[in-house]
Design a protein around this nucleic acid. Sequence first.
DNA 1: TTGAAAGCGCTAACAA
DNA 2: TTGTTAGCGCTTTCAA
Lengths: 336, 336
Amino acid sequence: MPRSPAASRGRATRNDVAKLAGVSPAVVSYVVNGTKKVGAATEERVRDAVAKLGYRANPSARALRLGSTEMLGMVMPTAMNPYFAQLAHEVEVAAAKRGYMVLTFTSDSSVVAERDQLEQLAGRLVDGVFLCSTVSEPDLRSLDLAGIPIVLLNNSVTLPTRDSVGVDLLHGAHLAVEHLAEHGYTDIGMVAGVGDVGGDQQDARETGWLESLERLGLTPGAIVRGTFTPDGGYEAMRRLIRSRSVPRALFVGSDQMARGVLRAAHEAGLRVPEDVAVVSFDGSLDAAYSWPTLTSVAQPLSEMAEAAVDALVGPPHERLHLVVDAHLVLGRSCGC
Amino acid sequence: MPRSPAASRGRATRNDVAKLAGVSPAVVSYVVNGTKKVGAATEERVRDAVAKLGYRANPSARALRLGSTEMLGMVMPTAMNPYFAQLAHEVEVAAAKRGYMVLTFTSDSSVVAERDQLEQLAGRLVDGVFLCSTVSEPDLRSLDLAGIPIVLLNNSVTLPTRDSVGVDLLHGAHLAVEHLAEHGYTDIGMVAGVGDVGGDQQDARETGWLESLERLGLTPGAIVRGTFTPDGGYEAMRRLIRSRSVPRALFVGSDQMARGVLRAAHEAGLRVPEDVAVVSFDGSLDAAYSWPTLTSVAQPLSEMAEAAVDALVGPPHERLHLVVDAHLVLGRSCGC
DNA sequence: TTGAAAGCGCTAACAA
DNA sequence: TTGTTAGCGCTTTCAA
């Protein structure tokens, strides 16, 4: 046999510790994992040896023996959007608390890439996967085949047979519209995002916008749609401006879209909020860094991350369909 | 013994494949890994069995045997900055090409978090680590102890004993300043970023700015400094405006800082580029999404990522100190 | 309280 | 060309 790779790298193994401490390898495991009581003196000797050699259990050997890699996977459309970057970070933090690490993939909003990456994760035998899917019916076969649990994260459209965590989009939209109404605006339009191309489902923020207006007895203002990107918001806003029907106030589907909306408004000489007030969605750093700063419906990301991690590595549970409440974060774009 | 975790999860092992194909387990490995020639008929039987059972080698067992986890680690200050988000994505892609996956951590620019995360990665026995450090002399002891190779990525200050990949900041600064000079501006100031608090090293972009002005025979315009964040840029620009010495043109240390600079300019009623022209650094999405769009010195991220991955998992090599060239990406902020 | 030993699934040297 | 086998380092049952 060649020398062990670990040894050749200079990493101490459990046997090295056992020898130094003058105990059997089993005892080292007992001490390190705290699985069994050992004599105080013995424990001390083992701990000394561990410290002296800088021993750390080999994770591959552990994983092989335990059937758990203590790793989780995450697939999201992009990290260029600070909303997802922040969500991923919160997941990373929540997972670390429980001793798990996260393998992260960005699919660039490609369904094919998403499927491939899920398959990669299945191949790595991660203990669970967080999926922020690009589509409403993701292809989860490779994970199912490997028996790997999944949480659909950032998930508006709930699948009955899957765990999911998402924000209450309807309620969030209500918050936005009601706030604009409180400012006294009666002409409240929307720049709505369109989700995946296949689905003809109307975005729930749009539904919420309509509901809220109805409840307030207001006539819906103009609505335009675009992709959930700055460009999408930009193009949509330009159309609105060209049509000369810019409402007094706008609810925008995401902070990223709002960046484009602001840009189009600036270019057209429209002042925000003096000429058109804006409230957007997500409460990401994009909102804080925009000019003017955006009033935005913020999602409780760390709460969502905690719940998602718990669903994967916590105690057994019922089917999870968590719908968390958003809250308004005030900026200057609404006129506050 | 309890049933094997893999088996209990319904995952086929190499033995299952061997049995179904009527060969020895070794032959399965030969076929799957292509390490040894086998008879055509045998190979076919094995491939059939593999396909039928959906067999994939257990990565933990492989790692244990081979001494390689086929995983890499990456630690960066934040993914909220699209520059790092994009860099991480390019690393992910380059690593995937070679069959490696990447465990990513964001340190929130905390030195302590950075050290802890490097230690976590060492504990996981990743095959190599990319580090975008917050400080110029990162604590690499845990990685060194484990014999894990490191590439300092996005690294301006080269450490002689470490592999590093970074952009030529001096040259990049020259590009920016020369472009502003070509526009006919003679009063060219700077909003410079300050790196880690400990180091009193002047940022190389600042040095490059000075060099370039000298070469052009121009007197340096006003300079202000701030952290490499939108807020840092905002505060710095406000100081500049308050001092009533805003130069005709500004070189800004990063796109993120430039966001803050633009905001301060807008608030003060300064038009960009009519009153003050701006060229920034990084060429990230922040530049494309700003208003006006930023002319920026762009870094060749995928080239950097490829080189960094190669250094970790490619063939043996000399000490790598790659310094790549940036190039100018034109927006509207310079007056073009 | 401690130790011996089986075996997780795999690779590769060696034998047939 | 194919099979046998010795571990990789670890956890845990079972026996002492």
